[in-house]
Design a binder for these strands. Structure first.
Lengths: 350, 350
DNA sequence: GTGAAAGCGCTAACAA
DNA sequence: TTGTTAGCGCTTTCAC
């Protein structure tokens, strides 16, 4: 009996039967007590809790999941964990989830559809109760698997035509409009935009919102001043490099995210440009780091906690009240401008 | 029959029986096939795999865990996910784990023993096969729970007297010694140290290693030049502030981690000090960001992937070959200096 | 080689 | 109110 022996040496691991025996009740009563069923008398409930304490017992979640069909596990898939935006988002999401008795499974897709597929599959294997796909609009086709398996899902900026899927809409335009008028008010007329990769839905939206904002502000926008780059520090360095090759250069740059903006700050410094005197820079996300760049970065804030909360609520709505057709299927998260030191009036020479 | 009905509407979710039926074999054969048992004939194996593909079936991990006692889940507890060092570590750990068929559960303790306790408990509930405690030497008492439950555990810089526990030793001294001689070579004699909080074992070790390095280099160390601060950007700002209040100021600062160093960079800039002309700064960790600070940060590199790999191997050794007394119980991860732009010769006036 | 059957620890009918 | 019992989906003896 190798198994028995192993368990014997392991010693503890009390199970529901151990508790029942100690409390002198049936295992059903133990189960009811733990799950807060109102049908248990105070007398027995007390005995059970005491036994639980005494044994330092806790239920086996796998057994629970197996019989109840619910794992109290939530998946969250982010694009790239090395962008500080995402850890911050994950942390918020975890906090909320744990507070509600859920555990989370985190994966990053690294913008690779194959990795995304494997993440989804692994989450399905673990029987997650729902998945938040925070990849901001890339390769959502893989998600068919989730939808087919009837798992609640919430996407950032991407609509899936399925009753189990909800969407978080990001209102970038408010923040971007504020950024453009902030710059315009400072006297800038030549503003460039370092866009994110076009395969990202969010990057395209941000770019379009920028174009609209410029248009509405009556500001001309040169074709060459909109450059596609990666949402990374290196992307920012590269994008800035391209801008510098131009003969007509902008006096301000709005970036599709903070990482690009920080890359620009770095590259501008290397080129001997002073920010904000020679060049104003605005990021988007307002990651914690933005406050500590040199100079502190003016940024369009996208609240991680708002986003995390929306994602959790969306999932919970689908999970805990499934089939309710009046469940909200769309959530909105807004943006706003945070002005710091990286923006200022353009110098006379510009 | 509410449950039946629910399953009916859910539609799919083929189980091992479905596969067995389609392949016209017993469920035992399906199980064997999936688990790569050599006792299955090619003929049947082929039939089974085909049925699996056709149904897009995959096993229920909870059922597997319940019967086998192994969850293929690994926990990792970090101190603070907003320090970029940790996401980078987690990512490495996840990569390795997933490659070996494990999933990971992440939690941050935020240096709060209560949170740590709840993390440990939740991980125990999920029946993790092992836990990597990457909090670098704080409040390890809570971990008794893990040890008592006989769960393999690996700690950074903390030894637990238990056969299930292993330790990763960090060799800071190599890197710190290199940092000090780098500065000495540049002509610095007045070097300060912004230490981490003393409740962290790692912070104390780093500080001691610094003292030793200074001593060995024949450099005097003023009492007031060693200041305890948080391992955060704000901590760095505050620590620098204290240093500035002194009449005798150092020409170089070595910091207990990169976050402190980046805070110093920021505060120095605000005070009008130029780095490295007026002040040299060295960090520790070498987070990805270090390359992109202004100026780029000279830092003592602590490889996340080395650390992650050591942690995984330690856990795996305990998990997959338990009871083997010759299993290595200690792992060593080293550090090295990466020189960038934040260090230079002190200016004449200093 | 293959299959039948006994649980893993728990929840939820159903009985009492 | 409480207890008894039938599984949840799988692995793993044990027979064949």
């Amino acid at each position: 009996m190798p198994r028995k022996a192993a368990r014997k040496t392991a010693g503890k691991m009390p199970d529901i039967r151990t508790v029942a025996a100690l409390a002198k009740v049936s295992i059903a009563t133990v189960s009811r007590t733990i799950n807060g069923s109102p049908l248990v008398s105070d007398r027995l409930s007390k005995r059970v809790w005491q036994a639980i304490k005494q044994l330092n017992y806790f239920p086996n979640t796998h057994a629970r999941t197996l019989v109840s069909g619910r794992s109290r596990l939530l998946g969250i898939i982010v694009e790239n964990i090395t962008n500080p935006f995402f850890p911050e988002l994950v942390q918020s999401f975890e906090e909320i989830a744990v507070k509600h008795g859920y555990e989370i499974l985190v994966s990053s897709s690294n913008s690779d559809p194959e990795i995304l597929t494997s993440c989804v599959r692994r989450m399905l294997e673990r029987k997650v109760d729902g998945v938040a796909v925070m990849t901001f609009g890339e390769e959502e086709t893989v998600l068919d698997q989730l939808v087919h398996r009837n798992v609640p899902i919430v996407l950032a900026e991407f609509k899936l035509d399925d009753p189990k899927a909800s969407t978080i809409l990001l209102d970038y335009s408010t923040g971007i409009r504020a950024a453009v008028s902030h710059l315009a008010g400072l006297g800038h007329r030549s503003i460039a935009f370092l866009a994110g990769p076009h395969h990202l839905h969010s990057a395209v939206t941000r770019e379009n919102d920028f174009r609209t904002a410029m248009h509405n502000a009556g500001l001309p926008l040169q074709k060459k001043w909109v450059i596609e780059c990666d949402h990374t520090l290196k992307g920012g360095v590269a994008g800035f490099g391209q801008l510098q090759k131009l003969t007509a250069r902008p006096t301000a740059i709005v970036c599709s995210n903070d990482m690009i903006a920080i890359g620009v700050l770095r590259a501008a410094y290397m080129d001997g440009l002073r920010v904000p005197q020679d060049l104003s820079v605005i990021g988007l996300d307002d990651i914690d780091f933005a406050e500590f760049t040199l100079p502190p970065l003016t940024s369009i804030r996208l609240s991680r906690s708002d986003l995390a909360r929306a994602a959790f609520e969306a999932l919970r709505a689908q999970t805990e009240d499934p089939g309710n057709p009046k469940m909200p299927r769309e959530f909105l998260v807004s943006t706003s401008l945070v002005v710091r030191g990286s923006t200022g009036a353009p110098s006379a020479g510009s």
